[in-house]
Design a protein around this nucleic acid. Structure first.
Lengths: 123, 123
DNA sequence: GTTACTATATGTAATTTGTATATAGCTTAT
DNA sequence: ATAAGCTATATACAAATTACATATAGTAAC
């Protein structure tokens, strides 16, 4: 993940990386997929080509596999090298369900902060 | 920060810790405050007494001071030991403004994920 | 004087993240 | 055939962050 280009928050990253696992679970819940191919799908969740960290993507998928959230099979592609195709497990579906619950809570707190900030006269 | 009690997301923390800095900036933007006293105010943002990590709070405040986002003065309290009272700086106000911008973006992506998950038939 | 509470602070291990790089199959041009 | 370029997966290592425990000390109450 590259350094934030916009000088937001004093070059600290906006730290959406941890959101990657949930995003991957959401995508794999719809349809099995492989690492490289998931990259562009992740753009829907705010991960763009310039900022995405490929290494982190593969690492996250492998970690999710060791945790039993997904499983993988090698698949021959029409052109290019073989692909490790990931599918979600029942445990992964449960995990995703729980994550969505957590995200709803987090969203609420973000909204509370934004509202509180915007109601404050010291802006 | 204690281990998540609810078995959500396989005991992984929901990782709202990084939200602490923004929450602190938001509170200090309204009014100067000291570490111990800020604890209960943080509950507004989802940090509760059982889960808050006092060490992280102090460390975050000190780090924010070295970054010039806040400054501190020692203040004698009516009862109990002296307090290090933190105030926000102009740089901190700018940082908070930027963070709010980032949070709005993140909120949007969380909403997109939740909506996508709930529209999916594979739940 | 010792127990309890308020208050601030840090040491250290574990985990996570950033960045760079390695490996290798397939396709296309020379 | 071989080099360049793309697809695809993977890991090594340093840096940063987080978890957890613990240290320090003033004040109050008993």
């Amino acid at each position: 993940m590259k350094e934030c280009q916009h000088l937001f928050c004093h070059k600290k990253h906006s730290k959406i990386e941890r959101f990657m696992e949930v995003s991957l679970l959401c995508l794999l819940n719809e349809k099995a997929g492989y690492g490289y191919g998931l990259i562009e799908k992740l753009s829907f969740f705010g991960f763009d080509d310039e900022t995405i960290n490929i290494g982190a993507l593969y690492r996250t998928l492998r970690k999710m596999e060791t945790e039993g959230l997904v499983y993988s099979d090698w698949e021959q592609s029409e052109q290019g090298p073989k692909r490790r195709v990931y599918s979600i497990t029942d445990k992964g579906k449960k995990e995703l369900e729980n994550w969505v619950y957590v995200l709803k809570d987090r969203k609420m707190h973000i909204e509370k902060l934004i509202h509180r900030y915007e109601s404050c006269e010291n802006k």
